[in-house]
Design a binder for these strands. Structure first.
Lengths: 275, 275
DNA sequence: GCAAAAGTGTTGCACATACACCCATGG
DNA sequence: CCATGGGTGTATGTGCAACACTTTTGC
């Protein structure tokens, strides 16, 4: 790594005239929802992928996304992608990471001609892309209304093919972040509808953490966190004791949602209503 | 918020021909180090800021940074900024967030002509900037060797002036993230040199968390984490019992450093040696 | 000896795990 | 009445905060 050492550019220039036109900016989204695999009892995490129609990685699956339009904020771009890919309203949306290694995208001219493995190209012929990745959750009530599209397919997160770019690693990181976050934050409910039973909420945790949880202790944990409110209603028609219905307590904010988290939730709901 | 609803762009295009040339990409860094305020016993967090030499916000202080050069990765760009601004080697470097709201940067033509308050411009005259922000720690052994520069000045993090752009909020978020992270991760040592006493390490925690810690319990916490190794040496010449010297245990990886965290630490040290 | 910080011991509380047990419903 | 999951009770363990106490140095 060679670092320029001139002090001539010490001033912060957020405004730049030219010189960086070869770096482009894309926004993609890891869209997560709970679904049942064929013949399975419990739910697991699934996500929609898009088949690439052009080089590089033509024909392979990739995260839904696209270039950042100047009129949209990063978050709006992620939301726009989400709507295009699924037609659904997310329960939660958060920035994951900005990926910007020089060689994370291969030169597509090389790809087209060679047709072989991804070969990093020289700097001067290299198409440089920085990707800002978001992740979103889809409420279970929305999942069934998924838009059907020829080039979009849902996959279980643990049965993915080899994806375009570094998207396998990105999804693995999204999963890691979600597993961490579900334990100290209160995002789990965003995979469910407005009202849900404790067993449903526990299923979300189990799908994300990929291990069974003790129902008795789970109940107490959630109760201690005071994140949900008893609606007084119950689900009837089950062939056992009718479970209570709860709803999320919106009066308490999320944990770390990125900067300005406290303002985020209100703004976010306004957005949802508009969409 | 108006979202385009066409399905024509569902494919993920990390490669784009044109269409977004008006969005530029900048990388800035929140550089943190421990320093003593005038006449104070304990340390607190300080950071270097750069005076802007052009509009918008000409004359105001801002985070050091600049446009992303195509040859550099995001992390390299942050490291480059760090070297230009301080001439120092960081102890730690991590991505904080990508800020990309449409109106976070005012139109500088308006600024130049009007000279009044920052007024968001129309979309078509608006210079759109997405900033990827990193944060870094400087080891205390390095701090004294700071490069002196007319347009760079260090400030205590709790005595900042009104900064350019949204940089006050960004720094506040950096502080919030650091406070969270220091409790579950092992970044504190990166503010110190190779060898340090427990009292010094505790001072780092106290400076970051901005509250006193019980020395007895602190010792046990650190011991339980097994993040440090007793060198066997002691500091002599104090007018009390000589404290042991410890060093960080590099054989254990950091907690969440962003994606690919496990590969990160090794690569990072290689980079340091080269610089 | 005294001051000052290093370092150890002890106790109580909060909270998590494990698991036994009772409750309410449909069939 | 029995199967099934909802829901409660309770013992055991673990980690942390509070704070009393001992140790080792310089002066």
């Amino acid at each position: 790594m060679t670092l320029p050492d001139s002090t001539s550019h010490t001033a912060h220039d957020e405004h730049l005239e030219a010189d960086h036109t070869s770096v482009s900016l894309a926004v993609s989204t890891v869209i997560l929802a709970l679904r049942r695999k064929e013949g399975q009892q419990h739910h697991s995490l699934w996500l929609p992928l898009v088949r690439r129609l052009r080089e590089p990685y033509k024909g392979q699956w990739a995260l839904p996304g696209g270039p950042l339009l100047p009129a949209l904020s990063l978050e709006e771009a992620a939301g726009s992608t989400l709507k295009r890919a699924t037609g659904l309203v997310p329960g939660y949306l958060e920035q994951l990471y900005a990926f910007g290694d020089v060689h994370r995208t291969p030169d597509y001219k090389v790809m087209r001609e060679g047709g072989s493995l991804p070969i990093p190209a020289e700097e001067d012929t290299h198409e440089r892309v920085v990707s800002v990745i978001y992740w979103a959750s889809i409420p279970q009530t929305e999942v069934n209304r998924t838009r059907v599209h020829a080039n979009i397919k849902w996959f279980p997160i643990d049965e993915l093919p080899v994806l375009a770019f570094d998207h396998n690693e990105i999804i693995e990181y999204a999963r890691y972040r979600l597993q961490n976050k579900v334990e100290y934050s209160r995002i789990a409910h965003s995979f469910l509808g407005e009202e849900f039973t404790l067993a449903q909420l526990r299923e979300v945790y189990e799908a994300i953490l990929d291990r069974p949880l003790d129902p008795a202790n789970f109940r107490r944990q959630i109760a201690a966190s005071k994140s949900i409110i008893d609606t007084g209603k119950r689900v009837e028609g089950t062939r056992h004791r009718p479970p209570r219905l709860y709803r999320y307590d919106h009066s308490r904010a999320f944990a770390d949602q990125g900067p300005l988290g406290m303002y985020r939730e209100a703004a976010y709901h306004a957005q949802n209503h508009e969409v």
